[in-house]
């Protein structure tokens, strides 16, 4: 699934990032990058997939039909992975800790610091940061 998500994202990355006018801020990397997280990786992954499904994709509709189809592809793939992560969580295999909770709170704070459309487009534009981090873990 991550491969399919990345290939869909790659085709619209430039289009989405061009819509992000706020260059001085990051949702996923401010103040510290995801890459600094050592423990609770599964928990953060689950929280971030929930975050993208619940909060981000619905606010990313564009006037471009091709872009909308790719966003749908990514969103439905995220939903499929989210379901699997929820099963892990229910089997106590994806437990959270203080570090992961604080990291996710920081990401939410970054997101809620912008108006919803800007925050959603910026989050979508940063998808490769998340995918890189997932593939490295």
């Amino acid at each position: 699934s991550v491969t399919k998500i990345r290939s869909s994202f790659t085709t619209i990355k430039a289009n989405i990032q061009a819509r992000d006018s706020i260059r001085t801020l990051s949702i996923l990397s401010h103040p510290h990058s995801l890459h600094k997280v050592k423990v609770g990786r599964c928990c953060i992954t689950r929280q971030l997939f929930n975050f993208y499904v619940d909060k981000v994709f619905k606010h990313c509709k564009t006037e471009d039909s091709f872009v909308n189809r790719k966003i749908s592809s990514i969103a439905n793939s995220f939903l499929s992975v989210k379901r699997k992560l929820e099963q892990c969580h229910e089997q106590n295999k994806c437990l959270c800790g203080q570090e992961s909770d604080e990291k996710f709170k920081q990401i939410l704070a970054n997101y809620e610091g912008l108006n919803v459309t800007s925050a959603a487009i910026k989050s979508l534009g940063e998808l490769d940061i998340l995918l890189d981090w997932i593939e490295k873990s």
Binding site: V53, F57, K58, S65, N68, R69, S72, N76, F78, L79
Partner: peptide
């Protein structure tokens, strides 16, 4: 047009055209 599970559950049951 198509509609994924995401559109049904999170995006107001929206439909997406296939150009």
């Amino acid at each position: 047009e198509f509609q994924g599970e995401y559109e049904r559950e999170y995006a107001n049951e929206s439909w997406i055209p296939i150009c």
